[in-house]
Amino acid sequence: MTFTRREAFGLGAGAAVFLATGLRLDPAVAAAEDAMKSVMDFAGGQEPAAGKVTLSAPEIAENGNTVPISVSVDSPMTADDYVASVMIVAAGNPRPGVATFKFSPMSGVAEASTRMRLAKTQKVIAVAKMNSGAVFMDSKEVKVTIGGCGG
């Protein structure tokens, strides 16, 4: 198989583009893996079940610098049965960890709100851990118009 001059150039350019995008993709993949790893660490190796926990976030966030989010977990919040903690993870951020809320029976209800940064359109994940060790998960896709990390 022989290349003409033109074909050879085309191939070279293609390879260069492939390499560049490949390199650019890497950190994102690593961040997503990081996110999954931190979820698994938090869950203590268990597969988080659906339900119980509800994550509220806007469908479209115009400004990624302050995205209001809130979590609520369905729990009686008594001394024997309460939500121990809720972890928020943003897999598409340069660093996926966002915050960990720690509740106690004194909380009354397991609800909390805050404002977070999102670098780009991505899935935000909330993982709730009960005092019994059971783990539940919810996620929301948030579209971001202007990213909120770095500059």
Partner: peptide, 8 residues
């Protein structure tokens, strides 16, 4: 709360 840099 344990905060990470992703908090506004």
């Amino acid at each position: 709360v344990d905060l990470e840099p992703a908090i506004s």
